[in-house]
Amino acid sequence: DEDELTGILKKLSLEKYQPIFEEQEVDMEAFLTLTDGDLKELGIKTDGSRQQILAAISELNAG
C-alpha cells in the first residue's frame, strides 16, 4: 500500500510529503478518504500541493 502511495506522490513531484503520511500511518485506503481539511491538519500548507493531492485522490476514487 505504502509503495503505491509513494508512487502517486512521486508522480505529483510531492514525495517530500511522504514522511508526513508515513508518520501519521496514512495507508492507501486512508489516503483515498482525505479531505482538504485533513491535508491541512497533516501539515501540507501549500494550496497547490493540496489541490494536486485532492485531484489525484478523486481520480483514483473515480477508478
Rank of each mutant, 00 (worst) to 15 (best):
T46D: 15
Y17H: 03
A30D: 07
I20E: 06
T35I: 01
L32C: 09
T35E: 12
E4W: 02
E25W: 04
K16E: 15
E22V: 07
L12T: 05
E41Y: 06
A62M: 08
M28N: 06
G37W: 06
G63D: 07
T33E: 13
E15R: 03
K10M: 05
G37S: 12
A62L: 09
Q52C: 10
T46G: 13
K40V: 14
L5I: 12
L12G: 00
E4K: 04
F31A: 05
E4G: 07
I53P: 04
E41W: 03
E15L: 09
V26H: 01
L32V: 11
G7H: 15
G48K: 10
L5H: 00
A62Y: 05
P19I: 03
E25Q: 08
L9R: 00
E15Y: 05
L14F: 02
D1I: 15
D3K: 15
I57G: 05
G43T: 01
D3W: 11
G37R: 10
Q24R: 11
P19V: 05
P19C: 07
L54C: 11
L39A: 02
L9V: 01
G43E: 03
Q52A: 13
K11E: 05
D47K: 10
D3I: 11
D47R: 09
T6V: 05
R50N: 02
A55T: 14
T33A: 13
I44L: 07
A55Y: 10
L34W: 02
K10S: 09
T46F: 05
I53V: 11
E23P: 00
A62V: 10
E59K: 14
I8N: 08
L12R: 03
K11W: 05
T33L: 07
T35M: 02
Q52P: 01
T33Y: 04
L32D: 05
D27F: 00
S49A: 15
A30V: 11
Q24V: 04
L60I: 11
K45T: 13
I53S: 04
S49N: 13
N61L: 06
E25A: 14
D36T: 03
L39M: 04
D36S: 05
M28W: 04
Q51N: 12
I8M: 15
L9K: 00
E22D: 09
A62Q: 10
E41L: 08
K45N: 11
K10N: 04
I57T: 08
M28Q: 07
M28L: 09
K45W: 08
S58E: 14
G63Y: 09
G7D: 14
I53D: 06
T33V: 08
K16D: 15
I20V: 15
P19M: 13
L32E: 07
M28H: 08
N61R: 14
F21N: 03
A30F: 07
K16M: 11
L54R: 06
F31C: 01
K16R: 08
I8G: 03
G7F: 13
D47N: 10
T46A: 13
R50K: 02
I20M: 15
Q51V: 07
T35F: 01
D1H: 15
T33K: 15
N61K: 14
L5M: 10
A30G: 11
K40Y: 10
E22A: 10
R50Y: 00
K40R: 12
D27K: 08
A55V: 06
I20S: 06
F21D: 05
E15P: 01
Q52R: 12
I53K: 02
K11C: 01
Y17P: 01
I44Y: 01
D27P: 04
E15A: 07
K16A: 15
E59S: 10
A62C: 13
L12C: 13
N61I: 04
D38M: 02
K11P: 01
I20A: 10
T46H: 15
S58G: 14
T46I: 13
D36H: 02
D47Q: 12
M28D: 04
S13L: 03
D1W: 05
K10F: 00
I8H: 08
E59L: 07
S13N: 14
D27I: 01
Q52M: 06
V26N: 02
D3C: 14
I8V: 12
A56P: 05
G63S: 12
G63E: 08
V26E: 03
L32P: 08
E29N: 06
I20T: 11
I44R: 01
E41C: 10
L60P: 02
S49I: 14
D1V: 12
L14M: 06
K16W: 00
K45S: 14
T33R: 14
P19W: 08
V26R: 02
G48E: 15
A55Q: 13
L9E: 00
E25F: 09
K10L: 02
I8K: 09
E41H: 12
K45Q: 09
K45F: 09
I57E: 05
E23K: 11
N61E: 08
L9D: 00
E41T: 13
L34Q: 06
L42S: 06
Q51K: 13
K45D: 15
E2C: 15
L14W: 00
E59N: 08
L5V: 09
L54E: 07
Q24M: 09
A30C: 13
N61M: 06
T35C: 05
T35V: 01
Y17Q: 06
Q51F: 03
I57D: 02
K11M: 08
L60C: 14
E25L: 06
A55D: 12
T33C: 10
L14G: 00
K11Q: 11
S49Y: 07
F21P: 02
F21H: 02
T35G: 08
K45M: 14
L34V: 05
K16F: 06
Y17I: 02
E4L: 06
T46W: 03
D38K: 09
Y17G: 05
K11H: 02
A30H: 14
E2G: 09
K45V: 08
I44H: 01
E25G: 13
A56S: 09
I44Q: 02
E25H: 12
L9A: 00
L12S: 03
E29G: 09
I53G: 04
T35H: 06
F31E: 05
E41I: 04
T33W: 04
Y17L: 10
D27A: 04
S13G: 14
G7W: 13
I20D: 11
Y17V: 05
K40D: 11
Q51H: 07
D38C: 01
Q52V: 07
K11A: 09
R50A: 04
N61S: 09
V26C: 05
F31N: 04
F21V: 02
I57H: 07
L9M: 08
M28F: 10
Q24F: 07
N61T: 13
E59H: 14
S13F: 02
L32A: 11
S58W: 05
L34Y: 11
